[in-house]
Amino acid sequence: MGQEWFSLDRLNVLIGVVVYTALLLYFIYQAKKGKELFVRKIAGLEAVDEAIGRATEMGKPILYIPGLSTISDVATLASLNILSKVAKKAAQYETRLIVPCTDPIVMPVCQEVVKAACLDGGRPDVYREEDIYYITYSQFGYVAAVDGIMVREKPATNFFLGMFWAESLILAETGASTGAIQIAGTDAISQLPFFITACDYTLIGEELYAASAYLSREPLSLGSLKGQDWTKLIIGGLVLTGVILSTFGLRFFANYFTTG
């Protein structure tokens, strides 16, 4: 075979992963120990309670789209955290929650999350498994079906949280035309403009992950968010150093970031 077990060319990748993981673990440990970790207010989140309350007052359902990606996507995982909070509130208010899924693996996870949230909210009786269902793996087939749900069921509140592609505008526009209050959030940069223009509140990029931590206050999410913040600080510092050195013609520092 003669293959190397350790590639020195990719040492920087290893260092990056180790530093990042260490920061995450450190802050998760701190959060678990009960240390108060500050997270700034996120505008879109203040509207979640209001949106659920509105659906309750109107006697109409809430539509929750957990994105179109797979379960391994971070955006989907963040969305599931928020779904848990939304489902708990909806259960307490006895408001119907519809969760159409496009991924066959995401669907059972959504069912589990909503079921647990209903239990947590003290209302296991309001859990309706038939409202969390699979539609199709086809992107536009799914969109056509969700558009149909929005037009027919007329949900009072639409949540679009997770990973979205070209379907984002179609979903958000149809939702806006039905008069629903819409809260969106995605880390798909190219889809954000449509959510910003067609939705009432939008969580931009990483705000989606932060929202999941802010809402859940779970040590795991809060610690992760802190770890990410520190990583961003380090990245910012390194980039700044690299820029200053490069300005003086010293490229050796930037070259450390070349991967083999």
Binding site: R10, N12, V13, S72, V239, I244, F257
Partner: peptide, 25 residues
């Protein structure tokens, strides 16, 4: 999925992009 994508993402999205940003101001 995580095992496959974390090192690859670190390489493609972070390190390479950091290097691309370290240009003379």
């Amino acid at each position: 999925g995580a095992g496959m994508s974390i090192p690859a993402t670190m390489q493609m999205r972070i390190l390479e992009q950091m290097k691309g940003t370290m240009q003379p101001f």
